[in-house]
Each structure stands twice: as C-alpha cells, then as structure tokens.
Nucleic acid binder design. Sequence first.
DNA 1: ACAAATTGTTCGGTTAGCCATACAATTTTT
DNA 2: AAAAATTGTATGGCTAACCGAACAATTTGT
Lengths: 128, 128
Amino acid sequence: MQEIKGKSISSSLEDYLEAIYEIYIEKRGVKAIDISKKLGVGRSSVTEALKTLAQKHLVNYSRYGVLSLTSAGEDAAKNVIEKHKVLYNFFKNTLNLDEHEAQENACRVEHVLSEKAFQSLMDFVNKS
Amino acid sequence: MQEIKGKSISSSLEDYLEAIYEIYIEKRGVKAIDISKKLGVGRSSVTEALKTLAQKHLVNYSRYGVLSLTSAGEDAAKNVIEKHKVLYNFFKNTLNLDEHEAQENACRVEHVLSEKAFQSLMDFVNKS
DNA sequence: ACAAATTGTTCGGTTAGCCATACAATTTTT
DNA sequence: AAAAATTGTATGGCTAACCGAACAATTTGT
C-alpha cells in the first residue's frame, strides 16, 4: 500500500490509476470502457473504482463526464509505472526472465515495494 | 497467489501457514492465541482462517483440538519461508536495505513472486 | 477440586472488490 | 432525426478478511 500524502491506496486502485494514465497517453482521452477492457473487469467495477478515486481526489470525475487524473493522481500513476519499468528491467535483464514472466512479476511487485527498496533497486540496476 | 495442487491460496492464508510453521519450530506446539499474537489479528480471525485452511487440507484442525500442518501445508509453508529468506538476503545484502526494510519488503514480495522468478533470484543471489 | 484466568468459538457487522442485470445516456448508423 | 448499438450507472448480491462481544472450553493457581 503506497502512501500518497498520508493516504494509502490499494493495489487495485493503483492498477486503475496506471491504466488511466496509459490510456490517456495512447488515446488522449479516457473512457470507462477502455479501463474495463484493459484491466479485464466489468464496467460497473470501473464506475465504482472511479467514485473511490474521485473521493480521494486522484481523478476528476462526474456522471457521464470527461475523465482525467488530478495532478496527485498523475503523480501516483507515474510512481507506479516507474516502479513497474524498473522491476520489469530487473526481472528481464538481471534475472533473465522471459518478457511475459517479467511483466507478470513486475505487475504484482510494483504494488508492494517500499519507496526505499525501489530507490535501491534503481541504483542497483543503473550501476550494473 | 501461489498454486498448490491447482488450488491458489491468498497472501493472508500464506501468512497463517508461515506463522504456524514458525511457531511449531519454536515451541513444538501451536495454539491459536500464538498465531493471533504473531500476526496481530483477532482470535476470531484465526479460527476463521484455520477453518479455511482445514477445508483446503493444509492444516489438521478440529474444535479445541491439537493443531498441526498437513504435509501439503508444511510444503506450502516451507515454500513461502524459503522465498522470504532469499528475498530478505537480497534486500539486505544486495540492495543494502536495513534489516527492518528488508523484512518488510520480503514479507510482502514473498506472496507475489512466481516460482520462476524465485528460482532465478536464488540463482542470482547464490552466484554473486 | 474449584475459582479465576485464559483461550477458542460463534455470531453479527464492516469494508473492499468483484460480478450480472437492468436501466439511462450517449454515440453511431442509416 | 430515429433506430440501433454502445457506453455508463445503479442496484443487489457475492466472497474474503477483518473486528468485537458474548459465550464455551480449557488451563492455571491455590
């Protein structure tokens, strides 16, 4: 559970933020259906998650309205994505896992690694 | 979620198995209250978890009876503990995290690392 | 052995996360 | 501009994990 200004956020919500960010980069606009497809969850689950993220001020969201990350949401998303990248590279290049395994493990570990561990891993990867 | 004969087991249940194993090693006998203290959960939560583990044939358990791991349960527990150790050493010795950080991260990552990733990490740690 | 303390269970409640179904709003097709 | 298709939401339901309180069983102290 990552800390964002003292508020922890679940693995699941981190996945939503990540998805929103990546979809936005790809398409310059985010629809709930895209999130649903990307994460493999039902549309109603997306609505639910968006409400929660809005409550936490991580997305701008209103009924049937345009969806975007707040700046706090963007920070959080980038943070997770950065962890993902570093982990992916570590699993692929250092541990020699195939791409699929590297992805899978990065996707899960990214949500549980502390800030310090992440920093150290980054240092380690960069100097080797 | 680790696979045990095709049945996945949650992070939480893995924690219970780990605790049971470690308490047994320490005390040669396991009481629910010890699990409760070790994991920092209520006694009623322990009862609940034990029922679930018994259903999955990972512990031998009956009302007010002696508690022990089945051999499948012991295998599962050892598997998690082994991961924990390898991860702890990696975080402490390779990434130079302090003991506390190394423990914390190992505790969380142990539940999400795939078998392959674990094997590779072990190889990596052992040859460096 | 029996009273007190501890431990274990049951019960009812909470929360997060998922789902499907039905309905509402929007977009696309014609 | 209607009809059809798609997308979004509300609702009710499910499961896993936790909790506290009340009660049952066991263990301990004397």
